[in-house]
Amino acid sequence: MWSYLANPERFERMARVLVPALWALAAVLFLIGIPWALVFSPPDYQQSDTVRIMYVHVPAAWLSMAAYAGMGIASFVYFVWRHNLADLAARALAPAGAVFAFVCLATGSIWGRPMWGAWWVWDARLTSMLVLFLLFLGYIALRAAIEDERLSARSGAILAMAGLINLPVIKFSVDWWNTLHQPASVLRFDGPTIHASQLWPLLIMALAFTMLLGALALTAMRTQIARRRADMLLRRREQRLEAEELKAGELKS
């Protein structure tokens, strides 16, 4: 299966159809989700209208974790099977994951001030989420710092795979430790505890952000493919010019 997906031309053909479809789906879902979340969903009986922050905070949290999971899996595929496309996928997911993690932390902080009375507390959920954000930044910095493409890809893959351990820590931090952050109310073994009037707009917003993440990641992969192809063409031209100069020199002498 990996080999089938790893063909860049096949990927390009697939992306050409998929990317516009994902942008369009994201736009439609946002058009439904935003008014639902901001206007039609009811205020919470405890949090009042600050509950509306949840409609961007929670999808951002889920998607930053999904982006990291994708990055970790793609890194594993690259590390084991050496498929360049898997490395491109990991690299493409990092900036989007970092932005979603940042949005999660920032909106959580904005919600925390009026509800908890604090912008930030060092509880296990918040701290592990901050670690995820730093892992994204570390991955991006590491990839940018190493010029050798193969070394950069391998080092990045090791970091991304090692960081996977943080995902269950984030998810179960609210169960394992006594945190100020509330426990899960949607992704629970015994089903969601959140009321349907808030669950549906939340799911629509999460789906909209998911489509957006897909479109962004595939677009970033296509960017990297185009860059690599351009670099390869330049290298080939340089080699050809060098060979021609050498030939001309030989003919003269």
């Binding site: 009042s48 940042f102 920032a106 909106t107 962004l216 677009t219």
Partner: peptide
């Protein structure tokens, strides 16, 4: 927003700004 306008709108505004900027930069790079 029930007296929480500053909090709600700044959270949504920040999200729109961050996600919008990411989208624009990604498409421009492509």
């Amino acid at each position: 927003m029930g007296g929480y306008a500053g909090w709600v709108w700044s959270a949504w505004g920040l999200t729109a700004l961050a996600v919008g900027a990411l989208s624009v930069l990604t498409v421009r790079a492509r």
